[in-house]
Design a protein around this nucleic acid. Structure first.
Length: 644
DNA sequence: TGTAGAATCGTTTTT
DNA sequence: CGATTCTACA
């Protein structure tokens, strides 16, 4: 199916790329626009370093997702003539997974036990709620923030390094009256984590930094540091990069300030400039501006989007690929009509030989794809949906994970709560009573029986957990047993249990690949294997290779490319999304997001605009109005009342 | 004390 | 729209 010759293409570099790929020592910042071959540069550099005889494990490649790292390493091994073994030893992954790797080995050095449990966002929220209750801060008397909101406040303020008070005043003024309570909860949350051996996403980075600072020899193990997507790193990740390279200064960071789209997570593209100003004043800067992906008309439009930005960016893309179709604007009456028109277009393209794999539909927020998903299902078209709602954050999956977490850490109060409250006849009060009695035992699973109201299902819980805790059973057997136990609960708890049952079976097939429970739990938290499809099902890599259309949030489409791209819902309020548009910076980020979306297209780009949304007339997105002269409009059946 | 059903909240993006 | 929280009742 793939007719490309990857090795010749991989080795084919322009002078700028060559300069970057052959970079030997010293700090270098590569400013690489969309589609300018930065992956190719990194891949070649890794291959060259290894070829030169650098020990592969001393090369550290930090990327945004694990998938990005493993794809790059695969390509590097092709360059080296399929020498997978050497390349495989290259150290790589996300900042978080790298932090975890270092901490599991060295946490004791900073007085943290290395068998900590990692909390995801939902776990953190649960812990925060627990802490709130322990502090006897009621959420009833006054309007008090939800646990999810509290988690967000605590998380963001850590990420951006500002105080809770400041953040609340800026972004949550309606909670100003509760600042004292929130402060208390946040403080107690920190100490609770320390006392209970829990670590959240931020802690991973904070502790990594602490270790690297106190024990520079750990950093010095790595002799070449490379960081991809540097525009989407946050302050602490920038500092970590510096600490890693402080001694030998062999550090290459690659980024594109026009593609910075993760500031909500604390990322700051100014890190790219800080790299020079704060850390490495003598850094060499290499710019990659020749685009190999898109046609000139598509680039014209993309450049047009960015030209209107307030912030002036550092480069302008160009291509030798002059010819191509002008991007097209498609009008629709409403969301359903928009979906119909997209479907029509896709079927037409398909008829003319474009594979569904080469088409993607991109949107700002995942719910915007729902009308289209309905159309696709109706017409029996395969699709995968990336981004948005996470398989591992659905409540039935969290339920299952709670049992495993209790096995791993019998003192995990939050998971105990979750498990016990699932049982009929046990409410909060009984639950607390039970926990008070069992938490002191190192192996409480058999003890539960004693403290429970006499009830058949509850005896099963004790048996199930004991069986799961047994060292003799494999993770798969544990899972199988658990599912037998959980099935009646599932049916009782959810109306849509058949769908969710599918998910659990998928989870079972994932756990099959693990022999070690800890690895399974860590991977599920730091590197979940994939996103969900329309049914919330886990989708494995093979599935996405079939003739399948891709629907994706723009965030999840980062770094990818397709022959044809649709960017939908270009109406004010939908894109830029209005709910949180509260500052110039956030509007600028929305603009960059639109830019990222359009630069995914190689040959054809369609922008769609529904004239009404939920029955009311909508306005064209500002971003669309700005660049409309660079588009071709499909006026054949434009609604009469539209001004064009 | 526990539960079921009603009301309500907050609605993006993700390691 | 789906999870969380509240309310009323057993």
């Amino acid at each position: 199916m793939n007719t490309k010759k990857p090795n010749t293409k991989l080795l084919d570099l322009n002078p700028q790329q060559m300069k970057a790929a052959n970079w030997d020592k010293g700090p270098v910042l590569i400013i690489a626009g969309a589609g300018t071959g930065k992956t190719r540069v990194l891949v070649n550099r890794v291959a060259k370093l290894v070829e030169k005889g650098v020990e592969p494990q001393k090369v550290l490649l930090l990327t945004f997702t694990r998938r990005a790292a493993s794809e790059m390493l695969d390509k590097a091994s092709i360059i080296l003539g399929g020498d997978k073994n050497r390349i495989k030893k290259v150290s790589g992954g996300t900042f978080h997974s790298f932090a975890n790797k270092i901490l599991r080995k060295n946490a004791q050095k900073i007085n943290i036990s290395n068998d900590y449990t990692i909390l995801d966002r939902i776990d953190s929220a649960d812990v925060i709620d627990l802490v709130r209750e322990k502090l006897k801060i009621s959420k009833k008397d006054k309007r008090f923030p939800f646990k999810k909101t509290l988690e967000k406040i605590i998380n963001i303020s850590m990420n951006k390094k500002i105080s809770y008070g400041q953040l609340i005043e800026e972004d949550y003024p309606h909670f100003i009256a509760q600042i004292d309570d929130i402060n208390k909860i946040a403080e107690k949350y920190q100490s609770y984590k320390l006392n209970n051996n829990l670590i959240d996403y931020n802690d991973l980075l904070i502790y990594l930094k602490k270790i690297l600072k106190q024990y520079p020899q750990i950093a010095d193990y790595y002799s070449y540091i490379m960081v991809d997507e540097y525009q989407d790193t946050n302050k602490i990740q920038g500092e970590i990069t510096y600490l890693l390279a402080k001694k030998h200064r062999n550090v290459m960071v690659v980024g594109d300030d026009t593609q910075s789209i993760y500031s909500f997570r604390g990322a700051n593209f100014k890190n790219m400039f800080d790299f020079k100003e704060k850390f490495f004043p003598d850094v060499k800067i290499i710019k990659l501006e020749e685009n190999y992906r898109s046609t000139q008309p598509i680039l014209d439009m993309a450049n047009g989007i960015i030209d209107n930005a307030i912030e002036k960016y550092t480069k302008v893309l160009f291509t030798k690929n002059k010819r191509g179709d002008i991007p097209e604007l498609i009008y629709a009456n409403d969301e359903e009509n928009q979906a119909e028109k997209i479907l029509e277009k896709i079927l037409d393209l398909h008829k003319r030989g474009v594979n569904l794999n080469d088409i993607s539909v991109l949107f700002r927020a995942s719910y915007q794809a729902i009308p289209l998903e309905i159309q696709l299902k109706k017409n029996g078209i395969n699709y995968v949906k990336h981004g948005g709602f996470k398989f591992f954050e659905t409540s039935h999956i969290k339920d299952i994970m709670a049992y495993f977490k209790v096995i791993q850490n019998p003192k995990d109060e939050v998971s105990w709560y979750r498990i016990l409250l699932l049982l009929r006849g046990i409410g909060e009060v009984t639950c607390k009573k039970i926990l008070k009695n069992i938490l002191k035992y190192p192996n409480p699973f058999a003890k539960i029986k004693t403290f429970m109201p006499k009830n058949k299902k509850i005896r099963n819980l004790s048996n199930t957990l004991s069986l799961m805790a047994s060292k003799k059973t494999t993770p798969k057997e544990k899972m199988h047993n658990l599912l037998t136990y959980y099935n009646p609960i599932l049916i009782d708890k959810f109306d849509d249990f058949p769908k969710r049952k599918e998910d659990l079976l998928q989870l079972e097939s994932i756990i099959e690949q693990y022999s070690n429970l800890n690895d399974f739990l860590t991977d599920m938290l730091l590197e979940p294997p994939s996103n969900s499809n329309s049914n919330g099902l886990y989708v494995n890599e093979n599935y996405s290779k079939k003739n399948t259309l891709c629907l994706s949030t723009i965030h999840s489409a980062k770094g990818l490319e397709w022959h044809t791209v649709f960017v939908i819902d270009m109406a004010e309020g939908r894109f830029p999304i209005s709910y949180y548009l509260n500052s110039i910076e956030s509007e600028e980020e929305e603009r960059r997001l639109f830019y990222v979306a359009c630069t995914r297209a190689k040959e054809k780009l369609y922008i769609t605009y529904p004239a009404t949304i939920r029955g009311t007339l909508s306005n064209k997105s500002t971003f669309l109005k700005e660049i409309q002269h660079l588009l071709k409009s499909d006026t054949s059946d434009t609604p009469m009342y539209l001004e064009i």
